[in-house]
Simulated scan of single mutants.
Amino acid sequence: MSNDTAAQPAYFIAHITVDDVEGYRNYEKGFFPVLKPSGARFVTYDDNVTVLEGERESGRTIMIEFPSEEALMTWWDSPEYRELAKVRQAAVTTHSVTIVHSLPPR
């Protein structure tokens, strides 16, 4: 990965269905303290997105912008997030977790 590519933002998009509300609240309580050191920006979440085409499972869609894919993966693989992810995995059904890359430099 070149330095130009490493500096490009990367977007984390997850779609989940909450199965255990109290468990998910515990995950939410720990989430932002673990996210903050990554330099990420929580963009939005939506429990009622508008689907223009195709199928969608019920649930929540979450979007977070990271300064780079490297920052995203450092957060994702961090011991702090991996431990917190166990709380999430016990409380929700994860339909997808996606990295969307910025346009490459031209």
Rank of each mutant, 00 (worst) to 15 (best):
A10L: 10
L72V: 05
M63T: 11
F42K: 10
F12V: 04
P105W: 07
S78I: 04
S96I: 02
R56E: 12
W75A: 11
H15L: 05
H95C: 02
F42R: 08
G30F: 07
A90V: 03
D19K: 07
Y11E: 08
Y27Q: 03
H101V: 00
I64P: 05
A40E: 07
A6D: 15
P9L: 02
Y45T: 05
T94D: 12
T17P: 00
R41P: 00
S58W: 01
N26I: 02
F42D: 13
R25P: 02
G39V: 12
A85Y: 10
Q89M: 13
Y81M: 08
D77K: 08
T94E: 15
I62P: 04
K36N: 11
G59Q: 05
L84W: 01
G54Y: 13
A85R: 03
Q8D: 05
R88P: 08
F12M: 13
V49F: 14
E70H: 10
V18D: 11
D20Y: 11
Y24V: 07
T98I: 14
L103G: 07
A40P: 06
A6P: 03
D77R: 08
F12N: 11
E83W: 02
V87S: 02
H15Q: 12
A7L: 14
N3D: 14
E53V: 08
D4Y: 11
E70S: 10
F31C: 05
Q8P: 00
A7G: 11
G30S: 07
H101A: 09
L35R: 09
E55A: 06
V21R: 14
P33T: 00
T74G: 05
V34Y: 01
H95D: 03
G54M: 13
F66Q: 03
G30N: 04
I64S: 09
D19E: 10
R41D: 14
A14F: 00
V87I: 14
N48D: 15
P104K: 08
A6S: 12
F32H: 08
Y11W: 13
E80R: 06
D46K: 06
I13P: 02
Y27N: 03
H101T: 03
L52V: 06
D47I: 08
D77S: 09
K29N: 07
D46P: 05
Q8V: 01
N3Y: 03
N48S: 14
R106N: 07
T17V: 02
E57D: 15
S96R: 04
V100G: 13
T61V: 15
T44D: 13
G23L: 09
Y24G: 02
Y11F: 15
G39Y: 11
